[in-house]
Design a protein around this nucleic acid. Structure first.
Length: 424
RNA sequence: GGAGAGUUGGCUGAGUGGUCGAUAGCGGCAGUCUUGAAAACUGUUGACCUUCACGGGUCCGGGGGUUCGAAUCCCUCACUCUCCGCCA
């Protein structure tokens, strides 16, 4: 969430930026927030004064008891009764205000970076780069779901039987291809300085709140009700939460982590051809990269991460484009996001395989990840993350783009992990 | 799942109702000494809210309660450890 101090000092700027994000009620929300905060501080002052008086009396009573002056001590006790009654009332007001302020703050999204274009939805995203050449396919080329069936490498019907839609079963070379991609991505991550993490696949409520999945996206997560755990929608959640409530040493920055995990998403409200085949799943595999750094370096790190993601796609030989997301399409918690989309030649469409974001201090404020700056002052870190990469759509594009009459060619960078160079 | 014991500042570890935000040691930082370093000695060393500042307030796993006063007593939840049971 945003920092209250910052909002207080930059009211007009905040309202202006929220408009770019298409936030419905910037003016009202911010003004209400500041009003509540003023009230809260006023009450806090009263509460502190009250407490101070009580503390003073308690101390006196303690002294009197020590001196053996019991009578006077007893008589002093009466003095606190009105103070206590008063305190209770103030306390209630104060905590009610605090909850209101917190809820309001949680409902306000991150401010978009100044480079974020205006826009309503994905049609307004800005294409900043287009890399590779779009393959010319023959008329009889197959979409990946047909290829999966033809070579018996991903079985959607079997997944339906065992669990339900969106839980495919990978078989034989299909399973091996998955394993190869995971290993390739993790190896590339390590090569670029990301320490590998194997995180829990379920997290508690505190973790889900800290990275912003709660309360915003509760309906998108699978909930394990018996123990009040949440299946992770991305490794970002457990990996970023490693640093929750920590003060990191400035000389350890930047912190880089990568993790392979399976990801679980309910995708409530998704229908139609978007969900065909591997395009949208309830369970999928992904390697995630996470970076934590100081505010002055976070945008350099964003570039470093973009380069890493682009490098993966280069090596896989997939044509891709990079989008700068517009205010209307950027996620709730992000300040600046670049999406990577690969071209899937048989479907003739772009598929998102990575999203690289700088959250600035928005997540860090909830997480309380801080460092001491050169003046010894506590500062919030900036957090960043990106997919590197999400598997299913990469597989979809690889299958479609690399199909030949002899079979599906495996990119060279994967062959040492697959042990084969063609699926036939 | 059953029984018991714990959870204190960066770490170790005292404190079991009254100047306790908390003894002490380690670690960290600064200084003295030294050509420099180490050692030794001296000092310093938590976070958060509020205030221009002085100051005030909160925090001893989380939440609630008892009391004039709680790290200390009670309730509750979470976690850790030991033993038993079950089990990959």
């Amino acid at each position: 969430m945003l920092q209250l101090n910052f909002i207080r000092d930059n009211k007009d700027l905040v309202i202006e930026r929220l408009k770019v994000k298409n936030f419905k009620t910037p003016q009202e929300s911010i003004e209400k927030l500041l009003d509540l905060d003023n009230l809260r501080r006023d009450i806090q002052k009263q509460l502190d004064d009250n407490k101070q008086k009580q503390n003073a009396i308690a101390k006196e009573i303690g002294m009197l008891f020590k001196q053996g002056n019991k009578e006077e001590a007893e008589s002093k006790k009466a003095q606190t009764s009105t103070l206590k009654a008063n305190e209770k009332e103030l306390q209630e007001k104060h905590s009610s205000l605090e909850t209101q302020i917190k809820n309001l703050l949680l409902s306000i999204p991150n401010l978009p970076h100044k480079s974020v274009p205006n826009g309503k939805g994905e049609e307004d995203n800005e294409v900043v780069a287009m890399i590779g050449t779009i393959p010319q396919m023959s008329e009889d080329c197959l979409p990946h779901w047909d290829l999966c069936k033809k070579y018996d490498i991903v079985d959607f019907d079997l997944g339906n039987k065992i669990t339900g839609a969106g839980f495919p079963v990978y078989k034989g070379k299909g399973a091996k291809l998955q394993r190869a991609l995971i290993n390739f991505f993790l190896q590339e991550g390590e090569n670029d300085g990301y320490m590998e993490i194997q995180p829990p696949l379920m997290v508690n409520e505190a973790s889900a709140i800290a990275t912003g999945q709660l309360p915003d996206k509760e309906a998108q997560m699978y909930v394990v009700t018996a123990d009040n755990f949440y299946m992770i929608p991305t490794a970002e959640v457990p990996v970023t939460n490693i640093f929750r409530d920590t003060i990191v040493d400035k000389k350890d920055l930047p912190i880089r982590r990568c993790a392979y995990s399976q990801c679980f998403r309910r995708e409530a409200g998704s229908y139609g051809k978007d969900v065909r085949g591997l395009n949208r799943l309830h369970q999928f595999d992904k390697v995630e990269i996470v970076c934590i750094d100081s505010p002055e370096h976070s945008y350099e790190q964003l570039e470093v991460m973009k380069k890493h993601v682009g490098g993966l796609l280069d090596k896989l030989g997939l044509p891709y484009r990079i989008l700068r997301l517009c205010g209307g399409d950027i996620s709730f918690t992000s300040a600046l996001t670049f999406d990577f989309e690969v071209y899937s030649a048989a479907q003739k469409r772009w598929l998102e395989v990575s999203s690289v974001s700088n959250f600035e201090s928005y997540q860090a404020n909830r997480l309380k990840v801080r460092y001491k700056d050169d003046n010894g002052k506590m500062q919030l870190c900036h957090t960043l993350n990106g997919s590197a990469l999400a598997l299913p759509r990469v597989v979809a594009a690889l299958l479609e783009n690399n199909q030949t009459k002899d079979g599906i060619k495996i990119p060279e960078c994967l062959q040492k992990f697959t042990g084969f160079d063609i699926i036939n």
